[in-house]
């Protein structure tokens, strides 16, 4: 994975595989705290303690199409190698919470990548019911919620290609603005 936005997409896919109805992602980018964190919370089927202990092992997967599961190990290692932190909590039938913290000025901290394209890919997932995204910097915040978008759209589907293109541009511009022009 080249950047944080790809990790974000990969982990959100896990949430949909766990039948999550709502997925909430919070990205916090703080120069003051020298910290970049990505947190994904879902209300999927969750995991018991035994499964939870196995998910960071690359040779564990629930999939039947292959024998390795690299998503979570990749994500964890990317954060730990910057001197950051990684935590995963889960409760069966309640959901799962994953948080990775990067040391912002560490050379191995991945760039943000194209968050707007990642959200677009999440929106076209037929399993997605509600997606909430918050981007927080030291000075500003950006909030996105598919429920708010749907309230405006009414009977027009979120997955209309014209609407998707608009939302991608809207998210991209908003993130760039609150990061002071950088992306």
């Amino acid at each position: 994975m080249d950047d944080l936005s790809l990790f974000m997409l990969d982990i959100v896919e896990n949430s949909f595989n766990a039948h999550a109805k709502t997925v909430t992602v919070t990205l916090s980018d703080s120069i003051h705290e020298n910290r970049l964190s990505l947190e994904i919370i879902d209300n999927g089927i969750g995991m018991d303690q035994t499964t939870l202990e196995k998910v960071t092992n690359p040779f564990y997967t629930t999939r039947t199409t292959r024998k390795v599961g690299l998503g979570i190990p990749f994500f964890r290692d990317s954060a730990l190698q910057t001197g950051g932190d990684f935590a995963i909590e889960s409760t069966p039938n309640v959901g799962t919470k994953i948080k990775a913290i990067y040391v912002l000025n560490h050379i191995d901290t991945p760039p943000l990548g194209d968050i707007a394209q990642t959200i677009q890919a999440i929106l076209v997932d037929p399993r997605m019911e509600r997606f909430v995204f918050d981007f927080i910097t030291d000075v500003d915040t950006f909030h996105f919620d598919t429920d708010e978008v749907r309230a405006i759209l009414g009977d027009v589907p979120l997955t209309d290609v014209g609407i998707l293109g608009y939302l991608k541009e809207y998210i991209h511009t908003s993130i760039r603005t609150i990061r002071g022009g950088a992306i």
Partner: peptide, 8 residues
């Protein structure tokens, strides 16, 4: 900056 208003 684009806003969700234009979405209407």
């Amino acid at each position: 900056m684009k806003s969700l208003e234009d979405l209407k």
